[in-house]
């Protein structure tokens, strides 16, 4: 995806899909798909990539991650692509804990707390993750033509905002056992800023919002690093440890 400006508007161009032109305040999107691009592909880009950037433009705190509603509150998983965010969220959703979001996390401050907003009931997974969740790869649609991830619909879905309970930063390291440790200090803000959706990184207003979101999360004292064994057969053990950890004060 490339970003450019057309007057005051923003233009997001996807070489294999088309372009999305966004009004300066984000209240209007004009989509110009290439001929023959299926509507479902346009819808997926709009939902997973364009709307998160517009929400950021409009002042929301928007992070790249996955979230589920646990009995103790919302657990959010952040980390780089391929580190297991969606797999963990999909596994927990299969275990009857409602999914909140996969890919785009929107946090809303309310009465001194942060709430995770529900997005839509689906996670995006690669074939091996689908199989470990007991799903047959070909039963689930590709997220986008020409890509390898597929969308798994999750019957368990949270329809209301859920108060934030834990923010887990997946380290990507494969450890022999589940390791969870508290994150403190300014370093969290750097990680939060790097996990955010921002339409215009040169716009002071949007930068301030992004910074306010990152520091709001850092101040909660609910941020932890998480390393899990990179072994699908031990996913239940990792999920159990997370449940236990999220339930502790």
């Amino acid at each position: 995806m490339t970003r450019s400006r057309q007057g005051e508007s923003y233009v997001l161009t996807y070489s294999d899909v088309g372009s999305f032109t966004i009004a300066p305040n984000g209240d209007q999107i004009t989509c110009q798909p290439h001929p023959g691009v299926p509507d479902k592909t346009v819808r997926q880009i709009l939902l997973d990539q364009v709307l998160p950037l517009i929400l950021s433009r409009q002042g929301a705190y928007v992070f790249h991650g996955s979230a589920v509603a646990l009995p103790s509150g919302a657990a959010v998983f952040l980390g780089k692509s391929g580190q297991g965010k969606s797999t963990l969220a999909g596994f927990l959703a299969r275990e009857q804990f409602p999914l909140l979001a996969d890919d785009c996390i929107v946090l809303t401050p309310q009465n001194g707390r942060l709430f995770v907003q529900p997005a839509y009931p689906g996670v995006r997974l690669w074939g091996d993750s689908l199989q470990c969740l007991g799903a047959t790869e070909n039963d689930h649609p590709l997220v986008r033509e020409g890509r390898t991830k597929r969308r798994l619909t999750t019957p368990q879905f949270a329809h209301e905002p859920v108060p934030l309970r834990r923010f887990y930063f997946l380290t990507g390291a494969s450890t022999p056992d589940v390791e969870i440790g508290k994150l403190e200090g300014a370093g969290i803000v750097r990680q939060m800023l790097e996990s955010q959706f921002v339409l215009d990184p040169f716009d002071e207003r949007e930068l301030k919002t992004s910074f306010a979101g990152a520091t709001a999360v850092a101040r909660t004292g609910l941020c932890y690093h998480l390393s899990i064994p990179r072994d699908f057969s031990r996913l239940a053990e990792s999920a159990g440890r997370i449940l236990q950890h999220a339930a502790t004060p």
Binding site: E184, V189, R190, L193, T215
Partner: peptide, 25 residues
């Protein structure tokens, strides 16, 4: 032209002019 916040005993400062951020402890 900054956004700054104190977290624990550290401050994080974001320079709005270039989008770079710094930690001061």
């Amino acid at each position: 032209r900054l956004a700054a916040s104190e977290i624990g005993n550290e401050s994080v400062v974001l320079n709005l002019a270039d989008g770079k951020y710094y930690g001061l402890n």
